[in-house]
Amino acid sequence: MAEIKTMAKKSWFLPAILGIVAIAFPPFLGGYFQHLLILMMMWITMATAWNLLGGYTGCVSFGHCVFFGLGAYGGGLLYLHWGISPWWGMIAGPLLAIIAGIPIGLVTFRLRGPYFALSMLALGETFRIVFTNWVSVLGGACGIVSSRTFGVEKLPYYYIALVIAALSVYVVYRLMHSKYGYYFVSIREDQDAAEGLGIPTTRYKMYALIPSALFTGLAGAVYMNYMAYIDPEVVFSLAGISIMMILAVMVGGAGTLGGPILGAVIFVLLNEGIRAAVGPISYLIFMVIACLLIMFLPDGIIGDWAKIKRAFRGKKPVYVGGE
């Protein structure tokens, strides 16, 4: 917590500069970079949302693709069954994610640590299989091809994604600077102690889950509208969505405000940069970099900032587990 405050004190103007750049700069970029920026905003939203539940509250979910997928399918199903504009999915998707999130939370919050992680993983897989098989209601494996509103124009998608990303960061910031934030962190640090102090942990975990599901769902709805195509393999993907969300947060720094943002930016740039540069071995290189980052900066770039600074100052870095 102290960390967040010092960060905020030191660089309160940073969001402003970033915001101005994020608003004013993209119109000058080519379509390809605008596309990457849209993905980046989407991943910032998802990473920030995951971080609220995983990083701050300590409930590491390996199944956030459930909320992403439901967010995407909200609009998709409206379009599939009633031909309604998938933009209504921006409301229906997150709503669906929250509606599903509440019972999921009630069930899985009884579990802790790795058991919680695994049960979320199982739920993610279950959703994927059910959405693949239930053709009449959910469209099945063929997925849903919807219409695209803006056609070639990418900027509207970008600004929508930007607003959602900014909103998610703002909401998490506010939450973490309220009493909720302190409760969340206390649950992460020691759940038994938090319970002993009279914090209803399940309820507070739920308070973290709902915004988390909401914003992940919103990101899913943006994805749906932007890509105009979803199928269960893609939006309920364990390796492609759930895991990558965690990876982005952990690379940047779990339990920090800037971590998910930085992590998502690095994630998109690194992923696409390596892919464009080296071709088919890119995934291997990406994974090697991920391994090294986790091994040497287990708290992420922002979380281990001190360690990085020390290393750059020429002092011998103290590697964790090395002594």
Binding site: V60, L247, M295
Partner: peptide, 29 residues
């Protein structure tokens, strides 16, 4: 590899899980 992060104090102990996953995906490649 895994021993380096095993038992280390981090914000989220699950970083080890993620490491094993990254190892798995890397080995696959």
């Amino acid at each position: 590899s895994i021993e380096r992060v095993f038992g280390v104090e981090t914000i989220l102990p699950e970083s080890q899980v993620l490491l094993t996953l990254a190892l798995g995906l890397g080995i696959t490649e």
